[in-house]
Every structure is written in C-alpha cells, then in structure tokens.
Amino acid sequence: MFGFGTEIGIDLGTASVLVYIKGKGIVLQEPSVVAIDKNTNQLLAVGEEARRMLGRTPGNIVAIRPLKDGVISDYEVTERMLRYFIHKTCGRRRFFKPKIIVCVPSGVTEVEKRAVIDATTEAGGGTTYLIEEPIAAAIGAGIDISKPDGNMIVDIGGGTADIAVISLGGIVVSESIKVAGDKFDEAIVRYMRKRHNLLIGERTAEDLKVNIGTAYPRSQILKMECRGRDLVSGLPKTITVTSEEMLEALEEPVTAIADAVHAVLEKTPPELAADISDRGIVMTGGGSLLHGLNQLIEKRTGIPTYIAEDAISCVAKGTGMSLESLHILEKSMISSKSFSRLR
C-alpha cells in the first residue's frame, strides 16, 4: 500500500485510539497503551496487547498510558504510539504524507494543542488539523451542525466529559471537565477499598462498571463476583457485588457530569435553549453507555436525552467526515500550518 494522498481522522482518546480513513471508515480501534522495555527503551507492544500487560509486568517492562485527562502526558511515548498506528493503517511506503485531523477536548490550552500537532507531525503526518471533540461527535452522530439551530452534545470519553451547544458549525457554550470513564473506575476502586477492605485493579473496576455499573436505579438488581486482595489478611479474596453498590460507588462522578450539563444549559442563549428543549440532548462516547446516565441527565434537566447510535465511534467518524467539510469548519479548527506561522 503506497498511501497516495491518504486523508485520515484520529480520535486520540485517553482510553483508546480510533483511526478513520476517508473512503474506508474506521480501520483501527485499539487501547491507548504502550509497553516499553526500560533497559533498552524498545517498544514491545502497542494497543490491546499492551493493555493485557497493565499491572502484570516485571520490573524491566512498563505499560504506559501516555494520555491523561484527554491530553498528552508523555510526549515521546505518544509520538511512538501514533507512528505505530499511522504505519499500521497507511503502510510504511508512502510517497505523500497523509493529511490528518486529530480531535482534542474543548478545554485544551494552546500549549496542549501544539503538543498534539507536533507529536502527529513527528509521527509521520503531513498537514495536521485539530478539531474539538463535541463538533466531531455531533458530525459523527449525524447532526447537521451548519444550520442556525441549537444542538447539545455530551461526549463522555475516558479522560474528559465535553458538554457543548453547537450552532452554525461552531461552539456557542461549552464546558470540559476531567470526570469521565477513568474517574468512574477510580470511584469503584475507592468504594471497594472503603466498603469491603478489598484492593482491586483498574481492569477489575472496569469490568464491574461495564457489567453492573449504573447511574440510575435499575429495575432488576444485578450481581457479579469480584476478586481482589483482602487488605486485612493480605490474601486473595472473592466477594459478590451488586448493582445497588455500584450506584452508590458512582454517585459522585455522575453527579459532577449532570451538574456540568446543568451549568452549560444555564449559560445557553434562550433561542438555542428552546431548540435543545425540542430536539433533546445527544450523548456520545464510551462513558455515555454507563447504564442510566441518560436517565439521570433527563431527570435533572427535564430535556429528553438520547444515546447516539454507535456512541463509541461517533468522535472518530466525525473526525474523518470533517475532512469533507473543511471549508465549513476552518473557523473552529487550527492546523499545523497556522501554528508554524505563529512561531
């Protein structure tokens, strides 16, 4: 594969990376985890293979998540991870560097934007554009954002929850909070430690969240076995956890997201607020799949709240599809060329 003029969109998420190639759709979905040998600085594994190593590596191997709260926390490792994914999807033999659009949370700083553009360019990208996650999510969810109508998007990923009101191709009001999927996992770990004196890992917490986690009372109580280390005896222990306990464990982070949605609605111009009341709120991202979160937001705001179809890949789809709408979106995007002019 020679990759003539390839155009790709990258959803560079805290939890996972999705790559969309124009004309092909989503071609890659991998966890954003990298395993490195500390002695030789050699890249051992990237993606799902590296994720399986989390918490299970010997002293000389470290499994790193190079993105934290939606932004780059380890520049060099992020660059190596991006290089691996670009080579995997576009091939190594390329006459032209691919045009790339990368999505970033709506609250990132100029320094954080520059870090993303530099890492993508160093990894083998050509002209690199940035697009804010709520705009990409809205496009991926099938919403026509070019019209003068108010649309509200709640995008909950691994590191950040982005809430935005969009009209005429741009963001009118937005809020980005660092409470999302990772904070749900942390809340479950804390709860299990405090309530059951049981120490569990991130992967176990994620399994509990996916299988029995809830943000709103379930009609039927679910149960699941959970294994960890007893903090009293120091020995392995298995207990049964219920969905009611998960409701209690997740109360703080889900309330923070509902509060942020409420705060954005308070700042929304009245005409757009009326549109949102008619159209409803659209939720995207993996975090939106937490059972009952849409019901909680609907109860809090009084506005119908829907989960987008294929919510996990909405941002990646929108990022790739926005390549076809650059003329509409250029006002709300920044490219590597504009950054080079600023230097």
Rank of each mutant, 00 (worst) to 15 (best):
F2S: 15
G5V: 08
G5S: 15
T6D: 15
E7C: 12
I8V: 08
G9N: 03
G13P: 06
G13L: 08
V17D: 02
V33Q: 10
V34I: 12
A35H: 03
N39I: 13
T40C: 00
L44K: 11
A45S: 11
A45L: 09
E49K: 14
A50N: 01
R51Q: 12
M53D: 03
L54F: 06
R56F: 12
I64A: 09
P66M: 10
P66D: 09
K68M: 10
G70K: 05
V71P: 02
V77P: 09
E79G: 09
M81F: 04
L82S: 00
R83D: 04
I86N: 00
I86P: 02
H87L: 10
K88Y: 07
C90S: 06
R93T: 10
P98W: 01
I101R: 00
G107H: 07
G107S: 09
V111G: 13
E112V: 06
K113A: 04
A115M: 13
I117V: 15
A119M: 04
T120M: 08
G124M: 05
T128P: 08
Y129F: 12
I131C: 07
P134E: 02
A136V: 01
A137E: 01
I139D: 03
G140K: 13
G150P: 04
N151V: 10
M152E: 01
T160Y: 12
T160L: 12
T160G: 01
I163T: 07
S167A: 12
S167Y: 05
S167L: 06
L168Q: 15
V172L: 09
S176R: 07
V179L: 05
D182G: 15
F184Y: 13
F184R: 09
Y191I: 03
H196V: 01
L198S: 09
L198E: 05
I200M: 01
E202M: 15
T204S: 11
L208T: 09
Y216M: 09
K223L: 06
G228F: 00
I239F: 00
E248M: 11
A249S: 10
E252G: 05
V254L: 03
T255V: 07
T255L: 07
T255Y: 07
H262L: 14
P269I: 04
P270L: 08
L272F: 10
I276Y: 00
I276G: 12
R279N: 13
V282S: 08
G287N: 04
L296S: 10
L296N: 09
E298P: 13
I303C: 07
Y306G: 06
Y306R: 11
A308N: 07
E309C: 10
D310P: 02
A311C: 04
I312M: 06
S313N: 14
C314D: 00
A316R: 12
K317A: 04
G318H: 05
T319V: 07
S325G: 00
L326T: 10
I328P: 00
R341K: 14
L342N: 15
L342T: 13
